[in-house]
Simulated assay, not measured.
Amino acid sequence: MKKKTVYKLMSGIVILTIAAYAAIYFLNMQSVVKKAPNVIDPNAPPTFSQLIYGDFDNSLDKPMDVAKIGEFLYVSDTNNKRVQVFDTSGTSFFKFGKEGEGKGDFKFPYGITGDKEGNVYVADLYNGKISIFEPKGKFIKYFEDKDKVLKSPAGLRIYDEKLYVTDVQQNKVYVFKLSGEKLLEIKAGANDKDTFKAPNAIALDKKSDELFISDSGNQRILAYDSKGNYIRTINGSKDGNGSSVFVNPRGIGVDSRGILYVVNNLSHTIYGFNEKGKQVFTFGSMGDQNEQFYLPNGLYVDDNDRVYITDTLNERVALYY
Rank of each mutant, 00 (worst) to 15 (best):
R250G: 03
F96L: 02
Y25E: 11
H268F: 10
E99V: 10
S131P: 00
D124F: 05
N314L: 14
D61V: 13
D105V: 10
Y126T: 10
K103H: 12
Q292F: 04
K3Q: 15
R82T: 14
V245N: 05
D145W: 07
N218D: 04
L125H: 08
T88A: 12
Y224P: 02
D225N: 15
Y224K: 04
V83A: 03
P63A: 08
G242L: 15
V32A: 14
T282R: 12
D57P: 05
V165N: 08
S131C: 02
I186T: 01
I231K: 15
G114S: 08
F273C: 03
E144F: 07
V263D: 04
L16H: 07
F108A: 10
L183Y: 02
I24R: 11
T166F: 07
L222R: 08
F86N: 02
V254Q: 01
F176W: 06
G287H: 06
G240M: 11
S216A: 15
F283I: 06
L319D: 02
N43V: 09
V307E: 10
I259D: 04
S237Y: 00
L204G: 09
G217Y: 04
K116D: 13
K207C: 10
N43A: 13
Y126I: 03
D57W: 07
D55L: 06
D205T: 13
K172F: 03
K172D: 10
K62Q: 12
N314H: 14
F246V: 01
A123V: 04
L204P: 10
